[in-house]
């Protein structure tokens, strides 16, 4: 995830430019980087479960698996945009819960779907702007900014905006409840939502100028600034995208479970989101990786959780096993692609 590996996120062109990238390569032409490690790990676990667990490798279960992690995956996409821009957004859970709960609340009071959605979107954008402004202009580290903003947004959610902290999915929104419920050609809509979000984010990051700017400013903000990229507005854009993606995930989640539990902010979900992103090979130091990494990370987590639920492993044991697997993935990467003092970036945690 550091300078040694230049080819995160299917960046074939980066590999081509860098030639045989740094780090040990077992297989000729295949960089044995974290993305690869996680992919192999995923394949191994998937294969093991398929062979050993009756009922795992069925279409139905695989769709269930995808459905379980689709919201996590969508959140991961938003987080990926920020992480690629060398930031982190801990307020995503708050901006998942509150704007979508606002939509549900307004809709239940007969404000109409469009108005409700518009209000929710405005709130999500406002959160993104606030985050972006504080990071870009006040220059507070993103870790701290988004932490504090997240607390604040959760506070707004608790200030009597909603009657209860669990906001039910109102009948007025029945017209759009399909985004979390039901399925198309047997594929649940929530999975389709994840796929759609992945495609949109992927095209945005890879094919548009703004996406390229985000990579550039994440890779080396100073160079990007010198090159004339408006680094600060680009930073704000990242957080706005993250806010919007989070709200979308919130709508899918609340449609799916027929309610929005705003207490979700209290949970440690955000760590899962970061894991999905970073495990897939998107470096926290920015500028590396892409949508494919999020998908790989999501699939790994989803497979582990699904398999263990089938095996009726307890919640705590699931967490333990999940953690150990993740630790193993990180260790293998560190052994195969050792970082040294020359490649490590200062202040890169």
């Amino acid at each position: 995830m550091s300078g040694t590996e230049l080819n995160g996120g299917g960046q074939a062109e980066a590999v081509a430019k860098a030639g045989p990238a740094g780090g040990a390569s077992f297989l000729k032409g295949v960089a044995f980087d974290q993305q690869m490690i996680v992919l192999l790990l995923f394949a191994a676990i998937f294969l093991a479960f398929s062979l050993l667990l009756p009922g795992f490798f069925t279409v139905g279960n695989l769709l269930t698996l995808m459905r379980t992690v689709s919201v996590l995956g969508i959140l991961g996409l938003g987080m990926a945009v920020v992480v690629i821009g060398r930031g982190i957004d801990l307020s995503m859970i708050a901006s998942l819960a509150v704007p979508s709960a606002v939509v549900l609340m307004l809709a239940s009071k007969d404000y109409g779907i469009a108005t409700s959605l518009l209000c929710g979107v405005s709130l999500a954008v406002a959160i993104g702007v606030l985050n972006g402004f504080l990071v870009a202009y006040a220059e507070i580290p993103s870790l701290f900014t988004t932490l504090a903003v997240g607390i604040g947004i959760a506070g707004i959610g608790q200030s009597g905006l909603f009657e209860y902290e669990i906001v039910p999915w109102p009948a007025q929104l029945a017209a759009i409840s399909w985004i979390g419920q039901g399925s198309l050609l047997g594929i649940p809509y929530s999975v389709l939502a994840f796929i759609a979000a992945a495609i949109i984010v992927g095209i945005f990051m890879r094919k548009t100028r703004l996406g390229a700017f985000i990579y550039a400013s994440g890779d080396n903000p100073n160079a990007a600034r010198i090159a004339g990229i408006p680094v600060r507005p680009i930073l704000m854009l990242q957080y706005i995208i993250a806010g919007l993606v989070a709200m979308f995930a919130g709508l899918v989640l609340s449609a799916s479970s027929s309610s929005m539990d705003t207490r979700i902010f209290n949970l440690t979900w955000i760590y899962d989101v970061i894991l999905v992103v970073v495990l897939g090979g998107i470096g926290l130091s920015g500028g590396r990786g892409g949508v494919i990494n999020v998908i790989i990370g999501t699939l790994l987590i989803g497979t582990i959780v699904n398999g263990m639920t089938i095996m009726n492993v307890s919640f705590e044991m699931q967490n333990l096993i999940k953690g150990v697997v993740l630790l193993a993935a990180l260790s293998i990467d560190s052994i195969v692609n050792p970082r040294n003092e020359e490649t490590a970036q200062q202040g890169d945690i």
Binding site: V149, I151, G152, A154, G160
Partner: peptide, 13 residues
């Protein structure tokens, strides 16, 4: 609780 969180966030920032 809501106000407390808002105040806390504001002070932190």
């Amino acid at each position: 609780a809501g106000a407390a969180r808002l105040i806390l966030a504001t002070i932190l920032l």
